[in-house]
Simulated scan of single mutants.
Amino acid sequence: MTSERERTHVALLRGVNVGAHNRIAMADLRATAASLGWQDVATYVQSGNVVFTSAEQDAGELARALEETIAEHVDVRCGVVVLTREELQQVAAANPYPHETDPKHLHVVFHSRDPGPDTAATLAVAVERAQELGGRDEATLVGRHLYLRTPDGLGRSRLASELTRRPAADAPVGTARNWATVTNLLALLEGPPPG
């Protein structure tokens, strides 16, 4: 049974507050989420991370509702991936790179659904190309989420560049977060709500 002091879900927005487009204030995002009847709403950093409590358990329905409400009230169109607290706990527990001590060098791409067969093949080709170019990056697909280790930093990652340049034809909507964000969101889900 869920404690009254624990939030139940996290919503991850894709592509907001990067550059001049898709700008959304976190106060507006919190108000938008609350307008859906979600409770214990809190945001974390400016990249569009919302933790909240909802009786609705269908992650796809929660994501669709937030996408539509943001588009209607804030005039921003963005993809949204929603996970339950338990799903985020599983993501943290399944980390294939526990030896990476710098949380800015480890990222998770959260997908809205299971990737198709082309995604794994595209990933294997991208890893091979990046290694041929001298990259030290590693990537592992676990379920519907992609773990990406970038020891030289994400901005200098040959693998990230390859994946961005040649996405799989069947790739689902996805949004990346570094490991520091993952662990901080998990702490917010497990901690007391605001107020």
Rank of each mutant, 00 (worst) to 15 (best):
residue 77 R to G: 02
residue 195 G to S: 15
residue 60 G to N: 12
residue 125 V to A: 15
residue 33 A to M: 12
residue 51 V to F: 10
residue 125 V to Y: 01
residue 40 D to T: 03
residue 160 A to K: 11
residue 63 A to R: 09
residue 108 V to D: 00
residue 136 R to E: 11
residue 171 A to F: 07
residue 115 P to F: 01
residue 146 L to T: 05
residue 135 G to K: 02
residue 123 L to D: 06
residue 184 N to R: 15
residue 73 H to I: 04
residue 142 V to W: 10
residue 169 A to R: 06
residue 110 F to C: 00
residue 101 T to L: 13
residue 95 N to V: 09
residue 27 A to H: 08
residue 89 Q to E: 15
residue 2 T to K: 14
residue 45 V to Y: 01
residue 17 N to V: 02
residue 22 N to H: 11
residue 3 S to H: 07
residue 116 G to I: 10
residue 178 N to T: 03
residue 160 A to E: 06
residue 107 H to T: 00
residue 15 G to K: 03
residue 73 H to D: 15
residue 182 V to K: 06
residue 61 E to R: 14
residue 7 R to F: 01
residue 177 R to A: 01
residue 168 A to P: 01
residue 86 E to P: 07
residue 125 V to T: 13
residue 37 G to N: 12
residue 77 R to D: 02
residue 81 V to A: 02
residue 99 H to V: 13
residue 70 I to H: 00
residue 52 F to R: 04
residue 80 V to N: 00
residue 45 V to M: 11
residue 42 A to H: 15
residue 106 L to W: 00
residue 162 E to K: 08
residue 59 A to K: 11
residue 154 L to P: 03
residue 80 V to M: 00
residue 11 A to E: 03
residue 155 G to T: 05
residue 148 L to V: 10
residue 150 T to H: 14
residue 71 A to L: 04
residue 87 E to K: 10
residue 108 V to T: 00
residue 31 A to R: 11
residue 6 E to V: 01
residue 188 L to R: 06
residue 170 D to W: 03
residue 180 A to R: 13
residue 20 A to V: 08
residue 30 R to Q: 13
residue 121 A to Q: 07
residue 41 V to C: 05
residue 137 D to Y: 10
residue 161 S to I: 02
residue 166 R to W: 09
residue 34 A to Y: 04
residue 93 A to C: 09
residue 152 D to R: 05
residue 149 R to E: 08
residue 83 L to G: 03
residue 118 D to I: 07
residue 143 G to N: 07
residue 111 H to T: 04
residue 88 L to P: 05
residue 39 Q to P: 03
residue 26 M to W: 08
residue 58 D to N: 13
residue 51 V to T: 06
residue 112 S to P: 00
residue 48 G to I: 05
residue 35 S to I: 07
residue 97 Y to N: 10
residue 134 G to R: 10
residue 98 P to Y: 05
residue 147 Y to S: 00
residue 114 D to E: 11
residue 27 A to K: 12
residue 150 T to W: 06
residue 12 L to F: 08
residue 161 S to T: 08
residue 129 R to Q: 12
residue 64 R to E: 08
residue 29 L to H: 03
residue 4 E to W: 01
residue 93 A to I: 03
